[in-house]
Design a binder for these strands. Structure first.
Lengths: 341, 341
DNA sequence: CTCCATCACGTAAACGTTTAAACTGTTTCA
DNA sequence: TGAAACAGTTTAAACGTTTACGTGATGGAG
């Protein structure tokens, strides 16, 4: 039962409207009154009742952020950046887990609508069209990841996976690799599709020998077994993984098979999760700038919210190759091997 | 913009009070009317306006969850579990980052109070007393981690670090280790203090030879350099780390120094972060059941919220040793070594 | 037949804000 | 001097719920 705006008004000897205007800067006030109000606020330890505020304004200061699973090391950076931005604009971010479950996603969006959120960022890989419609109908600003669609109230963040794949392959070929294999994710995921396609396109363009590409499931053990398959055939000198977990699986398989990375086999990951830095050897990988994604997601929403007749936009965020120790020249590797024996 | 309770009432031919009661089950209604109301709700796509609801009830359905940094791999599991519980009770969890900054913590709590949250879980390592007071004054249910204090509206979760240290040391001694060193965290952290103390107490009790314990900073590189120091002296056969990041640093140092883990050196971590499973070799570590912490945190709040004159309680959550590959018997290790040469 | 419970529901007053509109002085200008 | 403009402030009506209280049926007991 804290103090209300009425108490503040009484204490400062002004009307509640004035207090409100002082608080929101919605109308000029004299220095004198402002001081009195501010002083009263301090004295009473008054805190605005957001519920009442939201009700009166018809919108809340909460933003929705839907992710598939906060436990996935991909997301924390995004949510943190999003939150920081939100906070800087005096808003809050409610992050909800969909657990990859469409039903739960739908429920989450319902909840968010009940909370009168002015905008929501849906950063999951799979998006149900009915969710998109629900939000669009109510004119709630929305931003998606790789949705591809942009409209009145819908913005989109396009991740330039292709770019990253190209950089990785150029790097590997410059190192001298010709037999490069790819281990990707499940084709149900758009991101996995695009990465694989980029790999195939690029290897064709670079004229690399019959590049193998096999689909795993974006997990460590998936990468491990996919790598096993690869090693039983004609061995590649380098493997590009569709994500870092897969790459870690490859690292393990190589280790168990007595192959030294990067001497006998180069491995390049994708995502640059926190632990990419701590694998043995440290993983060379394509970094997806997660902090920027979070930032951009907020900015996309903010733009649409602050100017309602501003249409949604397409945002692009690039990817970068971060070079660590898991990839090296295959020639050099053979040289080393020779000199050791 | 959306339909309001009035629209529903009109459509169903009842009063808004009835609609409210149907929605909340706060008083008996006839099957017939209930059906009509529910039907109208479906037709209109009505969603309760939480702001209005919260205002009327004087409390929100939002729960606050303060953590130091969502990027810290320790937290996502906790927040996810907390959220799941909250959702199951028709509440939401607003998780805020304090970034280890007391000022920011204070602001966050202010925000939460403005949102009229009925409860907040503060799961950071450092807690400013003024924050505790603010919450206690307003009778907002609060649960802390290792605060040690319990009162009217304050519950506490006690993590049994000691227990885990004991289990780890018993395991190592059973394997035959006698020279066990410890690399802990900064003494500014209570958790680091308690772990170190437990280590010292227990090694003394077990009568192990002058156990070395040095303080690092809970990071990978911190662990790396601390391990260097250790190796330059009289080498231990096993190192217990204050957290997993430190343990990973040790693993790296051992690798770089040509030591094989666990053959030449056993390493045991603490926390069981996701990646403990994926290190090379997989890390034997003391697991802190994060999911349970999240669950318990919610339940603590729920108990205090649902029965306001129920006092706060002390909850305990234990720790467990999870055995993987980074620790082995030192005798066996020497045997292997001998047979290889 | 009357009275009183009981049941099912409606009425209307909160809850704490925001904000359009009305109301005060002052100042400015013809 | 009077009107007009203006800055600063107040008044009061929303916003969409919850919930204490009131009311009109129905039915059984006396």
């Amino acid at each position: 039962m804290g103090a209300s705006i009425k108490d503040v008004a009484a204490r400062a000897g002004v009307s509640i409207a004035t207090v409100s205007h002082v608080l929101n800067g919605t109308r000029p006030t004299r220095q004198h009154t402002r001081d009195r109000v501010l002083y009263a606020i301090r004295e009473l330890g008054y805190a605005q009742n957001q519920s009442a505020r939201n009700l009166a304004r018809g919108r809340s200061t909460l933003l929705g952020l839907l992710v598939s699973d906060v436990r996935n090391p991909f997301f924390p950076d995004i949510t943190a950046a999003f939150q920081d931005q939100a906070l800087a604009h005096d808003m809050d971010a409610l992050v909800l887990n969909t657990n990859y479950d469409p039903q739960r996603t739908l429920n989450s969006v319902r909840r968010l609508m009940g909370l009168q959120v002015p905008g929501v960022a849906i950063l999951t890989s799979q998006i149900d069209p009915s969710v998109i419609d629900m939000l669009a109908e109510r004119r709630i600003a929305a931003v998606y990841l790789d949705l591809g669609k942009v409209s009145e109230s819908i913005s989109n963040i396009m991740l330039e996976y292709e770019d990253g794949i190209v950089k990785a392959l150029e790097y590997l070929t410059q190192l001298g690799h010709r037999r490069i294999a790819y281990i990707g994710g499940p084709m149900a995921l758009k991101s996995a599709q695009r990465r694989k396609r980029a790999f195939l396109d690029m290897t064709a363009r670079l004229g690399l020998e019959a590049a193998q590409a096999i689909d795993a499931d974006f997990t460590v053990t998936g990468g491990y077994f996919a790598c096993s398959k690869l090693l039983s055939g004609s061995m590649p000198t380098a493997i590009l993984a569709g994500n870092d977990l897969t790459a870690i699986g490859i690292l393990h398989r190589a280790y168990d098979g007595g192959l030294r990375v990067p001497d006998d086999l180069s491995v390049v990951g994708f995502d640059d999760i926190v632990f990419a830095e701590y694998t043995q050897p440290a993983l060379t990988t394509v970094s997806v700038p997660r902090t920027e994604i979070g930032k951009v997601a907020f900015q996309a929403l903010w733009a649409m919210m602050s100017d309602p007749n501003q249409a949604g936009r397409e945002f692009r965020v690039g990817t970068n190759l971060v070079i660590r120790q898991s990839a090296a020249s295959p020639i050099e590797a053979r040289y080393r091997e020779a000199s050791q024996e």
